[in-house]
Amino acid sequence: MTKSHIKVTINGKPVEALVEPRTLLIHFLREQQNLTGAHIGCDTGHCGACTVDMDDMSVKSCMTFAIQADGARITTIEGVANPDGTLSALQEGFRMMHGLQCGYCTPGMILRAHRLLQENPNPTEDEIRTGIAGNLCRCTGYVNIVRAIQYAAAKINGTPFQEAAE
């Protein structure tokens, strides 16, 4: 199959590649760029495990062709940590609040939460729940994911976060 030339900025680094027109962005990232953090969970765009950030929008990379990313800026979970290598507020929040178990939905969930907090730095619980409704988690029951995002929002905003009593 003929291949097309694309230029993408991934986690701040310019990348050029040849892709088939039908190559999905998720496969391009995972198999051609070795960025295996984003996962495939459903093939139908429902689970959000493949979520990445593309040009300041959350995008399900299993519903996007790589060729559609030509010229785009993409952030994946591999590009989320602080420049000094420490965990970002969201990554730390997920760990501190036990917002993950098997870890399979986590990269997509964190990328989605990242965009949510960019759009709404101080979301209510309901706003968080609605905001992550495109991302499924089978392990946590979401309670601690909500707490993790609240933790991160507080940390980013410099406001106090009260851990819920057990």
Partner: peptide
């Protein structure tokens, strides 16, 4: 105790079967 696993999972460094090449 906070989970040991989360350090890799939150950074996309888990290693699942389909990651294997």
């Amino acid at each position: 105790r906070k989970r040991v696993e989360d350090v890799r999972f939150t950074q996309g460094k888990g290693s699942y079967v389909d990651d294997l090449k």
